[in-house]
Nucleic acid binder design. Structure first.
Lengths: 199, 199
DNA sequence: GTCGTTAAAATTGTTGACAATAGACAATCG
DNA sequence: CGATTGTCTATTGTCAACAATTTTAACGAC
């Protein structure tokens, strides 16, 4: 986990992790002053961070009132999100198969082993981080990473309900299956495994 | 065009319009201090607005350096964006056909007549605004508008190259065609017209 | 002339104080 | 008793000053 130079990013990362791992539940209001004293800094960077997270879809803002943690997406919205994620990540995988740059495979392998350990451990925040990192690695590879900013808010909205009914080891196996297909050069199999993984 | 209560939104709307209509070209740096004196306010709300637009994909931010207007998306990215927009807007149209709420048709008809006038006029900013409003109306209808925040940044990135090689009247006719199919209750035709319109 | 070093300027990052607004609660009027 | 108005408090919105950082340009050594 790299640490950002400016406070705004540090605060955003910290809150993002706590929201995604379920430590802060949907509907919880976040007050600027509270967070300012909690982090020991002024309200300025806090404001920036909250604005970030709002645009990422993790928070819901009402002018002159404040922000609260966004609710999980509706079934309809989630259905659309699933299709969007599949579209983006499948495009990235397809782009990778045009070059088959081994650097990505190396990074994915590293991620997999870390992910496996994390799934065994108790730090859900770490699990979320690594799961997301896996998919980010794939997306980053395509077109000089130009898809990342498109992909991130979609991904984050989906991870709002990460903690619920999810078998971590199952998730790991699916990741491993995708990477296996990529190693073997079987594009169709990789795309199919990816599609089935994003649900 | 509704005017926002807080300065931050006013600034964001103003800059958004100027960027989309091509008055501020890609690569142009935007300095907080300059904008502050230009708008006659302090840097605070300017910062917030720039953060907004950055997250919407219209600006590109580098820490400790500042923001500049984002470049048009690459061919690859644009290709993905087209698919995403089609997915979202098609979902919205499909959802509408389940209810066929006439309120939307009324609003679309109103928009069409305004749009037609604007295409004849010289205010490109107005044209962009109405074009976007048309698609927003469709998206807003579905699932209590829950798709809007997902749709907006995708839409905006696509409109970064709005001014170029585009026949306004052709665009109007395509809008009209979609609405006509909706009036007639022909779902397949509406979806097909929408798909062909988003390119 | 070219490269590296350093000082200056421009710009963003951060802060604390003050203003404006929304929501809750009590007092007032019909 | 219900609705309305006014006040109070918590919270966000805005501001101007200061700190930290990056870029620019000047300067000198080789």
């Amino acid at each position: 986990m790299k640490l950002a130079a400016n406070l705004q990013e540090q605060v955003a990362s910290h809150l993002r992790r706590r929201i995604l791992s379920g430590q802060i539940l949907p509907g919880t209001p976040l007050r600027e002053q509270n967070l300012a004293v909690e982090f020991g800094i002024s309200r300025g960077p806090i404001r920036d961070a909250l604005l970030h997270l709002t645009k990422e879809g993790l928070l819901l803002a009402k002018p002159n009132v404040g922000v609260r943690v966004a609710a999980e997406p509706s079934a309809f919205k989630r259905h659309v999100i699933v299709h969007l994620r599949r579209e983006i990540e499948a495009s990235a995988v397809t782009a990778w198969f045009a070059t088959r740059d081994p650097a990505l495979l190396k990074r994915l392998d590293d991620n997999l082993s870390e992910y496996k350990d994390a799934c065994g451990g108790s730090d859900l925040g770490q699990v979320v981080e690594l799961d997301m990192a896996f998919h980010r690695l794939v997306v980053e590879t395509a077109d000089q990473g130009s898809l990342v900013d498109l992909w991130q808010p979609i991904m984050l909205r989906m991870f709002l309900r990460y903690s619920r009914h999810r078998d971590l080891m199952e998730s790991y196996n699916e990741h491993a299956g995708i990477v296996r297909a990529m190693h073997a050069g079987r594009e169709w199999e990789a795309l199919e495994a990816l599609k089935l993984h994003i649900v």
